[in-house]
Nucleic acid binder design. Structure first.
Lengths: 186, 186
DNA sequence: ACCCTAAAGCAAAATCGTTGCGTCTAGCGC
DNA sequence: GCGCTAGACGCAACGATTTTGCTTTAGGGT
């Protein structure tokens, strides 16, 4: 029964806000359910009943934070659009807090949950860029090709090899994808 | 003071063994520090002092589990070697327990920790395969190219989109990489 | 053989996670 | 407009986990 304006909605908003505030104040590792509950003005049992445990709650908040706020900027052609988006994506995700959010999102309910949502956000943004390119009459690869050739390598390095990761790498991935002929795969 | 044969080494081995035993017996989610400590014949405070918390310990054990036991099999040529390795990699990593280990490894101490080790294992295996190909006189891509074109997409889908992931996808990634000309990049 | 350091054991206290029960609010039918 | 019902929240108690100060022991160096 989570209708806008209802009590549940107020509680959820209050708890989410408390998490974001406390993450900034005391750091993500110092978060506990009782701490969040106190800040949000609810009792711990409410959080346990609604979310199950702290990881589910953090996962919830993380997905909200990873949702893009605006459609990708239009720079006039596919190459510029993709490059700019990839650089921004890397910027946001590779920061310490970005990595923490990704890890939190990966922890939520296994299968079908928040991790997939996070990936869907990226695919959505890429799709907008590609559709725009096709509208212009440009040759464009498929969404899956971009996910494999750009998003996946970026995410892999963010998660497993954070050191030595810069915008040049993101640009190279985009260039190599677009150079490998105009395969408008699928 | 973790020298082989010392007391610390014995404790570490005992605790690691206890984690693996209990993971198999009661399941990963039922693990608690006191439980592991009891099985290992140490006190909980020892584990808290050495590892900090349960996630660090699980991260440690997970990396051990992700270490490949044998060098990749030799199938006669680069394409067959890479394909077989990618399929096996996918098989091991995409299983529920494999995903759990990966997630555990990602949780350890941020930066320079266990996640990097996990990636290094894969790079090592790929390197063996590529070196073998070059010994045979074949054209081979660089390790980084394989990581970007095969390992990263596999891992991305394992983590973010586990549904609809099969051996054919792994084969396609390898084929597409090798088809894109004999760029022995770097 | 002796000391010196680092790590482990021990035990108590604080904190956290969990659960049952009563109360209240929101939405719904009359 | 007024009860009615179902779901959600607060309260409180319990059990388990985590943390901490002090003591003890094992290893390594001289």
């Amino acid at each position: 029964m989570v209708r806008p304006g209802g009590r549940s909605a107020r509680v959820q908003a209050s708890v989410h806000a408390a998490v974001r505030e406390l993450e900034a104040e005391v750091g993500r590792d110092a978060l506990t359910v009782p701490l969040v509950a106190q800040r949000a003005g609810v009792t711990p049992s409410t959080i346990y009943r609604r979310w199950g445990d702290l990881q589910e709650l953090l996962s919830d908040v993380a997905v909200e934070r990873l949702r893009p706020e605006a459609p990708p900027e239009d720079h006039g052609d596919l190459s510029a659009d993709l490059t700019a988006w990839a650089e921004q994506f890397l910027d946001e995700m590779a920061s310490p807090s970005g990595r923490a959010y990704i890890r939190d999102a990966l922890l939520g309910d296994p299968d079908g949950g928040n991790a997939g949502q996070c990936s869907a956000y990226a695919a959505e943004q890429v799709d907008v860029i590609l559709a725009r390119a096709i509208d212009r009459g440009e040759d464009a690869p498929g969404v899956e090709a971009v996910m494999d050739a750009v998003v996946a390598p970026l995410m892999y390095r963010i998660l497993f090899r954070p050191a030595g990761l810069d915008a040049a790498y993101a640009r190279r991935l985009v260039t190599e994808l677009l150079d490998s002929a105009g395969e408008t795969s699928r």
